[in-house]
């Protein structure tokens, strides 16, 4: 009998204070070894200072078919971006 180790999604926070970023997946029998395996697999080149591991089956993802209704509406809200507003140069940086 063979029971495959579950799959984990690995997130690593790098050197420069950015958020944790998804770097890939791996198999591990439990949470502790998932962190250790992630350390050995995904930080061999000094990529990280912190690791999150999440069971892949616990990740909730948006549905591809919802892409239009979820994301297209943002396209028309151009006034949310600073370039939308023109400020006279003499006012200085803003």
């Amino acid at each position: 009998m063979s029971k495959e180790w579950p799959l984990w999604e690995i997130f690593v926070r790098g050197q420069h204070g950015l958020s944790h970023r998804h770097v890939g997946s791996l198999h591990a029998p439990d949470a502790e070894l998932a962190i250790k395996n992630a350390r050995d697999v995904y930080t061999r080149r000094r990529e990280g200072l912190s690791i999150w591991a999440v069971r892949s089956r616990d990740v909730v993802a948006s549905a591809p078919l919802d892409r239009g209704k979820l994301f297209d509406p943002a396209n028309s809200k151009i006034y949310r971006h600073p370039e939308f507003f023109s400020i006279p140069e003499e006012v200085g940086p803003m």
């Binding site: 009998m1 063979s2 029971k3 495959e4």
Partner: peptide, 15 residues
């Protein structure tokens, strides 16, 4: 290596 993979899985199943 099967015993190794299964052994670790078995420990987690017990937990």
């Amino acid at each position: 290596g099967r015993w190794f993979r299964d052994g670790l899985a078995a420990h987690q199943a017990k937990q």
